[in-house]
Design a protein around this nucleic acid. Structure first.
Lengths: 149, 149
DNA sequence: TTGACTTCATTGCATATGCAATGATTATGC
DNA sequence: GCATAATCATTGCATATGCAATGAAGTCAA
């Protein structure tokens, strides 16, 4: 029962923790705008953003497809898509060739919303880059190394 | 109703998104070990880590205190602390000087657990640093710039 | 063709979360 | 000294989440 000294561990220097805090801060700052002004959550935003990219090859755009590209559980994608459909921002149709697949696509209202949202995101990205200045390239390289594998 | 072209936006290049994915991957990799082997969640782990640092000045170690340092909502801290108390890993006592405050402290069992957990975390940190090699310094500088303010 | 296996998307369920409200205690102004 | 305001921790409640299970559709081999 003697009080063995514990290893000295500083959470503030722990990379996973630092990443989590940085991610939360940056995401939340923008997400607050989405939420308050458009009623859009982060999962919903990710789905919308993916659908807003026309240049992407074959464009199956199924739930499975988005799950793979957007790093979200498929149930999360499915529920986000349902909410977006209920809001009239996307349309879900059964794929003709393979009736297991659900084809997701922006509605006109969805495109109109993205025409407002995307400039906000682009501006925020530029703001981050400006705030980090020279440090941005290093962050990018580090993230690249972390995400690549 | 003409299809206006949307701004070209690549989620994969969006810093908040990259941070979120990187944070999720690194945290989850370690959290899986906590969970499977010790039944500890990330919020619980953060509380434990904070309590495991003896060198920290006045050491009030209230829920409020942890909330501020560990970047978690106070309800999250409160619930994590309750679970840890139920598991016998920490003790909660009312602060004598200010009876609104709850003083949190590791029990002997809690210290014993941390003696196992902390080396895992330290090893993981070293693994990340090795994996990133020269890119690590850049990542650190970038995170520093993001988190400082 | 049939039957076992795989792939997709959704849903059920238990748990986790954020936020506001509450209760308890202490600080402050008059 | 007393009423009001501020601080701290917990809890209620609605919603979100992860994971497993389900159901529907397609593939493959014999």
């Amino acid at each position: 029962m003697t009080t063995r000294p514990l290893p000295d561990f500083d959470l503030m220097r722990f990379t996973p923790y630092r990443l989590a805090v940085a991610a939360e801060r940056t995401s939340e700052e923008l997400a607050r705008q989405y939420r308050k002004r458009f009623g859009i959550s982060i999962p919903e935003w990710r789905v919308l953003v993916h659908l807003a990219r026309p240049t992407d090859g074959a464009r199956t755009v199924s739930v499975r497809d988005i799950e793979a590209r957007v790093a979200m559980e498929k149930s999360k994608v499915s529920r986000a898509a349902s909410r977006l459909e209920a809001a009239g921002l996307i349309a879900k149709t059964v794929e003709a060739g393979d009736r297991r697949l659900v084809r997701l696509a922006l509605t006109d209202a969805g495109r109109a919303l993205m025409a407002e949202l995307l400039p906000l995101a682009l501006a925020y990205q530029r703001e981050i880059e400006a705030r980090l200045a020279e440090a941005f390239a290093g962050l990018e390289a580090g993230l690249e190394a972390l995400l690549r594998e």
